[in-house]
């Protein structure tokens, strides 16, 4: 399976990719913001997107709205990993097209469970 991890923090990208590797997933693309994420998607399909919310240039929400409008990406599973955990934030993310949500800070088990849940539902 092919994953796209979008986060302006290289630390957080590495933590997420380490988790994916532990789940046996080794094909991971990286992007530092939503605009770079869209460029990566133009190179080919992915099976799952894992994205941050607060990023410079293009936020995670703007990115997901753009992804949902792209041919072939309307139903790609999206997991949002963010500190934005107020009720209004979660509603906004779900409306933008996010499938599941991980609140930072998170334990390794939490993110594994959420990734598994999104993959199982696929």
């Amino acid at each position: 399976m092919r994953f796209l991890v979008v986060d302006d923090s290289s630390t957080m990208r590495r933590i997420v990719i380490n988790t994916l590797n532990k789940l046996g997933q080794h094909e991971c693309l990286e992007a530092g913001n939503g605009r770079e994420g869209l460029e990566k998607l133009q190179q080919g399909p992915v099976d799952m997107i894992i994205t941050d919310w607060n990023m410079p240039e293009m936020t995670g929400i703007e990115f997901i709205r753009a992804v949902r409008g792209m041919d072939g990406f309307a139903s790609v599973p999206v997991l949002m990993v963010t500190t934005n955990a107020a009720k209004d934030d979660i509603v906004e993310a779900l409306r933008a097209g996010v499938n599941n949500y991980v609140v930072k800070p998170f334990t390794p088990d939490t993110i594994k469970e959420k990734i598994d849940a999104v993959l199982t539902a696929k």
Partner: peptide, 10 residues
């Protein structure tokens, strides 16, 4: 710092 501030905000 982002996580401390973000969790504080929430």
């Amino acid at each position: 710092t982002n996580m401390i501030a973000g969790s504080f905000r929430t």
